[in-house]
Design a protein around this nucleic acid. Structure first.
Lengths: 356, 356
DNA sequence: CTGTTAGCGCTTTCAG
DNA sequence: CTGAAAGCGCTAACAG
């Protein structure tokens, strides 16, 4: 049934073209792409109908939708994101800002965030604060207004600064525990406990925790977890401080680690663990036969030799969870959600029973 | 001289407020932020003046600018990015899409791109194609319309697909050599040559090139460079193919590498090199005393033990260069720029004269 | 130098 | 179910 119930306007079919082409409507920034108006005219319907065909097809006849779509694709029409954003007040983007993209902890996280955003039809803006609280503040201030929400991963800002931004935009934190704000925390405690238990089970009675940046929330959490588990299992734990989380810092602290008399070490993160491994090797200590090492985050672990036993953080899950949380709270009020993600110990080749 | 030459409108100062507050203009999506109108009214100037104070201050009196700014900050006004974008036709963002953020080659590159964009007042949209040409195509199609331009890093799309997108938006390629399109190529050839020279200088007469993905442009370039340099320097080169660029692939191909009889290896990239190192260690071969290994890209190198001698790609520079190129070509025509970035050999600890 | 007046392209009441 | 009209917040001629 060839039912063409669409009334077609033929107004511009005959008249002279010259007079109109004279004032070739400036075309300011339209990028040459066809607009909703052109589709409407070509399809013989109104703007509204075309708009609805794209945004709420259920509101109009299936036939109409089909026809509009047909014309639209023929013309190569694609809804203008910006115009839609201005009209609806929704940017269709979320931003994620991290202290340092090059830090291997973040890429998987960003990847998860991007996947979650993409899946929900959102785009992902990326910001790198370069570990600088001030830059981060500025960056968030700049990104905020052009997004529907922001996720701050391992923010270096003060709680005040964070709260100020949360006032303006939906905001979710990753690895930063600010009460009142939605946050996803990677609970390394569970994995750390498993690590200590693993070591204790192997027979170790004394281990050292190689701590990371003093100002790091994660570091505090991990140190505490090691201590608690050690106490519970009757394993002595000594702390050796490595200010920065770098390979070199790990190498340098090896001396102190060995001096403690412990037979195993749990490092703040994989980078540090790798440094410790190198430091140990330099001194001719064989791992894991003479000394055991466990890392944290599982970012380097799989590509090292020997493969590092470590606590896996599932960064991708965190990124995904954060974006999902953000998206779900877009129209709702600021929820005080505190989502903890478990971690697990991944056994590889750097642990064994203590020597002797 | 207290010259207040600003004529202030006092119209709304006395009249009753109730009747107006009744129709609290829907506020659709304004996010509650003050608009240019409110600033204009509060400052006793017109919209245009406020607009100019922000976009082209040089067009108006310094005094006026100061006054507008004062009022604006007092009201907490921030120009609406979206509205500006719609009006000017410039999104103020550029996108970068990579095959896999988690691949350590890309983070530095993204970092450079983000820095360059940020510096120019642009924001960076990030896309991850997950190594899938189809996803990449869709992603670019989605990101394109909401950006002023796109940089495609190590694109997996066909030349046709790339060209199609380049038709719609300014586009610059990284590590993909499509004539007619602006592109920045990391010329690993220079670094590779230096590597072969280094090895030859050390006394090696036979080396193997551990090749990466067959479809990779970079792989072809590197293999060719090794061959050419070898020929020039009288060094025999054997190729051993590792299909994928992974640690495991490197481990697995060690057998073949050793079987070739060579005394050194240059791997397609660091990941592969690391695998080779591990494979060598498994077989009790000491590096660099018994066998030399050189990687490529310098992404893992600094955090490995032993520290890997490698060809540094300067990914950050590439990202930055690509964005700069993109930004500079925003209003100009599509330029056929082909920018090659040199690489250099970074000497660390995995090379030495051949044994015996 | 500043104000007026039109839009940018789309969504959304409000009528029919 | 569809159309007409009124904006979203800002910029850009065009006058003054």
């Amino acid at each position: 049934m060839p039912c063409n119930r669409l009334h077609v306007k033929r107004s511009s079919e005959i008249g002279p073209v010259a007079p109109y082409s004279e004032r070739v409507t400036q075309q300011r920034g339209s990028g040459g792409r066809p607009t909703i108006n052109q589709v409407a005219e070509a399809a013989g319907v109104s703007k509204s109908t075309v708009s609805r065909a794209f945004s709420r097809p259920e509101m109009i006849t299936a036939e109409t939708v089909a026809h509009v779509m047909e014309v639209a694709t023929r013309l190569g029409y694609v809804p203008n994101h910006t115009a839609r954003a201005l009209s609806t007040g929704r940017a269709g983007t979320v931003a994620i800002v991290v202290p340092d993209i090059a830090n291997p902890f973040f890429p998987p996280l960003i990847r998860g965030a991007q996947a979650a955003a993409d899946q929900a039809g959102f785009s992902l803006l990326l910001g790198d604060s370069d570990e600088d609280p001030t830059r981060e503040d500025v960056l968030v201030g700049k990104l905020g207004p052009q997004t529907d929400g922001i996720v701050l991963a391992s923010s270096r800002m003060t709680e005040e600064q964070i709260l100020a931004h949360a006032e303006r935009r939906p905001l979710v934190l990753i690895n930063r525990d600010v009460p009142g704000l939605p946050r996803v925390l990677i609970d390394t405690a569970t994995g750390i406990e498993a690590a200590v238990e693993h070591l204790a089970g192997l027979g170790h009675r004394h281990l050292v925790y190689v701590s990371g940046p003093a100002s790091s929330w994660s570091n505090a959490q991990r140190r505490h977890a090691v201590r608690a588990a050690g106490r519970r299992l009757g394993v002595k734990v000594t702390a050796v401080a490595a200010r920065r989380s770098t390979y070199d810092a790990g190498v340098q602290r090896t001396e102190a680690i060995l001096a403690s008399g412990a037979s195993a070490a749990i490092a703040f993160d994989d980078l540090l663990a790798q440094g410790v491994l190198a430091g140990l090797a330099e001194r001719g200590m064989r791992v894991p036969d003479e000394f055991s090492v466990i890392g944290c985050d599982d970012v380097l672990a799989a590509t090292m030799y020997p493969p590092l036993t470590t606590v896996s953080a599932h960064g991708g899950d965190a990124g995904r969870a954060a974006v999902d949380l953000l998206l779900s709270s877009l129209d709702g009020a600021r929820a005080d959600v505190r989502r903890e993600l478990d971690t697990s110990l991944v056994l590889r080749s750097t642990t064994a029973p203590p020597a002797g």
